[in-house]
């Protein structure tokens, strides 16, 4: 796979946790942290999307800045002195994890449990009556499910559906404050909305709030077993674009389809056929 060459960029030197690092101009603090191997947790950051810096779990301390700054979106500036694990940054990270975990179901968020332990977050401290975003799961079509109990309102699905990728604009953030939700117009079912079922929102969802119907059903039935699944990247056979598909297979059945984010053409995006049109592969024997 050839990746187009970028024009040469000037290098900037910044300091991350006392270690000098040189990154190309235009890089973010997060890029610099990745370059030094410093782990900064992220939730709303998407490698294929413009950083929204809404979750604030990646905040770091920058010398001279009144407030903490989001590593995912703040561009590195020459001479910047960044502290990723100062007491102040870790306090905010811990509280953000507590706030999220106490209001949202993070059970299918990769690494959430690990971070909660790492930062010593205690979501239960807000008591049993703490408000949550609990609501019925939205199952209104056969392809994917919207479980907003798990939604951290990272805006990634909205950006993927809107002008950053799909340009369908089927969903947006509605309401305000704690009552804000991802919604179609008038909260209509997806089947009455502009949704084209490309599933690119599912691809970017960081918490499992959006999931394949197949995954949702298997999780409900208790048969979802990620450890047993194999992942095979292949080429979609529907048309001539040649999108890459990663087939997740459990017990010889395709259970969901993702797409590699580093593909220089599709950046992890697919259409309804590539994303959801796999059933014919496994209907042959029984229904033939």
């Amino acid at each position: 796979m050839t990746v187009p060459l970028q024009p040469p960029r000037r290098l900037l030197e910044i300091t991350v946790d006392g270690e000098a690092v040189r990154v190309p101009e235009g890089s973010t603090i997060l890029d610099a942290c990745t370059a030094t191997g410093t782990g900064v947790p992220t939730l709303c950051y998407g490698d294929t999307l413009t950083p929204k810096n809404a979750c604030r779990v990646c905040v770091v301390e920058v010398e001279g800045s009144r407030t903490l700054v989001p590593a995912c979106s703040r561009k590195a500036e020459a001479g910047m002195v960044v502290g990723t694990s100062t007491e102040r940054a870790e306090h905010s990270r811990k509280v953000v994890l507590e706030l999220l975990a106490s209001s949202v179901d993070l059970s299918t968020t990769p690494r959430a449990a690990e971070w909660i332990e790492e930062y010593g977050a205690r979501p239960e401290r807000f008591g049993p009556d703490a408000a949550t975003v609990e609501q019925p799961v939205k199952v209104d079509n056969d392809l994917y499910v919207r479980d907003y109990n798990k939604c951290i309102l990272c805006y990634k699905c909205v950006d993927a559906c809107g002008d950053q990728w799909q340009n369908s604009f089927a969903i947006a953030v509605a309401g305000r404050g704690f009552d804000a939700t991802i919604s179609t117009e008038h909260d209509a079912p997806l089947t009455d909305s502009a949704c084209v079922y490309c599933g690119n929102c599912v691809e970017v969802c960081p918490t499992g709030a959006l999931s394949f119907k197949s995954e949702f059903d298997m999780r409900t039935a208790g048969t979802w077993n990620e450890a047993e699944q194999t992942r095979t990247t292949t080429i979609c056979s529907y048309c001539g674009v040649g999108c890459n598909l990663t087939l997740h297979v459990q017990e010889n059945r395709i259970v969901k389809v993702t797409s590699p984010h580093d593909n220089p053409v599709t950046h992890g995006n697919l259409c309804i056929k590539g994303r959801f049109g796999f059933q014919h592969v496994q209907n042959v024997a029984s229904d033939g």
Partner: peptide, 24 residues
């Protein structure tokens, strides 16, 4: 709590938790 726009987590959930604690 009413006027938070809901964009970032510290404010969206933090203002709710602040109100809950004051109620308690």
């Amino acid at each position: 709590r009413d006027e938070s726009c809901g964009q970032c987590v510290p404010c969206r959930v933090g203002t709710v938790r602040q109100e809950e604690a004051l109620h308690r």
